[in-house]
Amino acid sequence: MLEIVFVSTINGVLFGMLLFLMASGLTVIFSMMGVLNLAHASFYMLGAFFGFEISRHIGFWPALILAPILVALIGMVVERFGLRRVHRYGHVAELLFTFGLTFVIQQVVEMVWGRLPVNYVVPPSLNFSAFTIFSTTYPAFKVFELLTAVAIFVVLLLIIRRTRIGLIVQAALTHPDMVGMLGHNVDRIFMLVFGVGVALAAVAGVIAGPALVTQSNMAGLLGPILFVVVVVGGLGSLSGAFAASLLIGLVQTFAVAFDISLADLFGPLDLDNALGDYLNDIWNVTIAQVAPILPYLLLVLVLIVRPRGLMGMRDT
């Protein structure tokens, strides 16, 4: 029992941090620009493929720096010539624009790298097991993933709360005209923020690529869970996203570990009719079987009970 609890906790934290790594950029863009970027997972995928291509030629560590910079440049071009134009037509136009962008990026990736998974491997310098608990090994790469996520969280929080840049950015969100009057270039600030947001997605891609599967459909598979993290955490709240990532990681991991159904708790149902058969199916479903849908259940509950999310500043 102790073993399961211990191992599940570690697995949950590791998975949670991976989620945060992916969701942090989405939160940054939303909290500072008010844009819900549906193409976020696509930029994550671009990061993974750029990381793969660059690390093939000059190694993983340069890729970790170069891939996000490249993706940030692409992101800024998209903001400057696409998003900024549709911005004035409101949120629906923005959503549709980023939605369309997901298909464009996927097609481009398929044209360049094909539809099969690419062989993106963990760099040799991180390819050893960091520690062993109850005969389960944990690779150094996962620990690196966790440390990166925590570092990004701390740095972002400091920039937003403690620096002049953060101050101006936050002011530009609520009072763009006033900030413009004071001599700041609001358009350029937004462009930079979007660039930083998608660069964070690319960092996640470079790091998660070798651990997961790098292929052209990885964006579509990841998309939904990111929105759960952001909404449960509270739209636009970085600390909220951090807490929500951990919560979702732990909930899902622990749920998988337990094969307990309602029948185990309350005994078998004694109903011998059609309704009984029907209920029996539900009665015998184990927590492990429903584990992957628990985050979505959480999403629905949070929206009903506390629409602003765990730490959100305003109602959504």
Partner: peptide, 15 residues
Amino acid sequence: VKITDFAPYVAKIKA
């Protein structure tokens, strides 16, 4: 095709 993290399942197999 919904699972991103199979570590918990692997932990169960191991246990």
